[in-house]
Design a protein around this nucleic acid. Structure first.
Length: 454
RNA sequence: GGCGCGGUGGCCGAGUGGCUAGGCACCGGACUGCAAAUCCGUUUAUCCCGGUUCGAUUCCGGGCCGCGCCUCCA
């Protein structure tokens, strides 16, 4: 069995075949660092983290190179910094640190490389120069624009043609464009806005060029997989293909540039896309501050197939938390060890276009039942499968107790003594006392366990 | 207007041309000093209309509904 992934280019499942199994390369579009990430932003992070873990499992930990860029040149950043009266670098550093903290809480591994746009301006300028020299771009009115008619394959990813796009355009076409579909590679920066010196004057790059320059620098002209949210297909990824392919000398083979294009569906709220502009978003940070474990958010995301829309509700998150309570409860009573064997069906489910719901509901749950029935090795298998999904790796005691509390332990001990003396009135009094503090007790043959409810 | 995605039982959510996952919730039972946890059992479905087929939830066509992209967007 080999990994099969739905490819946006062909709109079909395709077998995943890296060019070089010794160096599997993936690129995923990362955050624009001007504000906290919401759950919609977190979905691709979690989805591609599972893919990253699966590929590391298949090809070896050191054999997978995962690049996720950080966009720190952007007009929204400029506006936010101005509004805060804060230097741009301070804003982007602070936002990136928050992003890291939040994504860490979701159990996402750090990518191999996290290039920042500000560190790649020179490669971007060089690439733009090549595009001009090749006749794929032109300078006009202080801007450099990509000439869409110069690239015959334009539109193949999003399956739209130029004429349709122009007919349906909802924005005015800038007067300096030769063709209405042309897009900006470089634009002038007025005073007070970040700018870099270039052959076309002081300016800043357009949105799309950073990914082309970064992927080329860090992964080479061709790599194995390019991912991101559904909303990036057009125009971002379409334009990226045009820039990269033309900068690399034009279309040579069908699999030029990225070989597989993988896009995740949206997080929805009440049937609508979660987005900053609609204002219907929950930041990861606010959920964490409410006391929801990051792992519960992660599981809530993974219980839906990555290409399906996911309607996120409090109930969903609570259900994921309850699932984890069961898993950790079982692991608490029967601790597993690292190095367990993965169930074959589990890997097969993930290799079937990352079918995480099947992997969880079928295989993880089956092993959970086996752990509860005392089957040898079941907890080990559960831990091993959890590691591929980025779940169940915490200490079960810590999951239930948080930082712990000596006063609770003392009360629990007092109740154990009362029970031993068959003083059930006192035992129940203590249990009630603890329940008022949100502590739930569990008497087991091995002793009394406690956990925080909710 | 153009392009695209989806509609499964109370809820979530997969697979599959016939043998119809799984989870959650609910209900009943076992276990327990009482609980908790766990285990056992029960229940409910494939948007509508045609077509192909011996047979469709699954394939094809049409319709209805919801959503998305075409502007920044994960």
């Amino acid at each position: 069995m080999t990994l099969r992934l739905h490819d946006t280019l062909t709109r079909q499942e395709e077998p995943f075949a890296p060019r070089d199994p010794e160096r599997v390369r993936m690129y995923v579009c990362g955050p624009t660092v001007y504000d906290l990430a919401h759950v919609g932003n977190a979905r691709p992070v979690v989805v591609f983290d599972v893919l990253f873990r699966l590929l590391r499992h298949t090809y070896g930990e050191g054999k997978v190179v995962y690049v996720r860029n950080v966009t720190d040149i952007d007009d929204k950043i400029n506006a936010a910094a101005k509004a805060n009266g804060e230097p741009i670098r301070a804003l982007t550093d602070r936002t990136l640190a928050a992003y890291h903290a939040d994504m860490d809480a979701l159990g996402a591994l750090r990518p191999t490389h996290e290039p920042r746009a500000t560190e790649f301006v020179a490669p971007m300028i060089a690439m733009i120069g090549r595009l001009i020299a090749a006749g794929n771009a032109y300078e006009a009115d202080g801007h450099v624009l990509f000439s869409v008619p110069s690239f015959s394959a334009y539109g193949q990813l999003s399956r739209r043609n130029r004429d349709e796009m122009i007919a349906g355009a909802r924005v005015d076409v800038a007067p300096y464009k030769r063709d209405p579909a042309d897009f900006v590679l470089w634009k002038p920066s007025p005073e007070g806005i970040p700018g870099w010196d270039s052959p076309w004057g002081r300016g800043r790059p357009g949105w799309h060029i950073e990914c082309s320059a970064m992927s080329e620098t860090l992964l080479g002209e061709t790599f194995d997989l390019h991912g991101g949210g559904l909303d990036l297909i057009f125009p971002h990824h379409e334009n990226e293909i045009a820039q990269s392919v033309c900068a690399h000398g034009g279309l040579r083979t069908e699999t030029h540039f990225a070989r597989h294009w993988v896009h995740n569906g949206f997080v929805m709220v009440n049937g609508e896309k979660m987005s900053k502009s609609l204002g219907n978003f929950w930041t990861v940070r606010e959920l964490l501050e409410e006391g929801i474990p990051g792992e519960a958010i992660r599981l809530a995301l993974l219980k839906t197939h990555y290409r399906q829309p996911l309607d996120l509700t409090r109930e969903r998150i609570a259900e994921a938390k309850a699932d984890l309570d069961r898993f950790y409860g079982a692991l608490r009573r029967a601790p597993g060890r690292k190095g367990g064997t993965l169930d074959a069906g589990f890997v097969a489910a993930l290799e079937d276009d990352l079918n995480t719901p099947a992997a969880i509901d079928l295989h993880l749950k089956r092993r959970l039942a086996a752990v509860n029935e005392g089957e040898a090795g079941a907890a080990d298998a559960l831990l091993a499968m959890g590691a591929i999904l980025g779940l169940l790796q915490q200490d079960p005691e810590a999951w239930f107790k948080g930082d712990g509390d000596a006063s609770i332990d003392a009360l629990v001990d007092a109740r154990v003594a009362a029970r031993k003396a068959r003083n059930f009135a006192e035992a129940d009094r203590i249990r009630k006392l603890l329940a008022e503090q949100g502590i739930v007790l569990e008497d087991t043959p091995q002793g009394t366990l406690w956990k925080r409810a909710g």
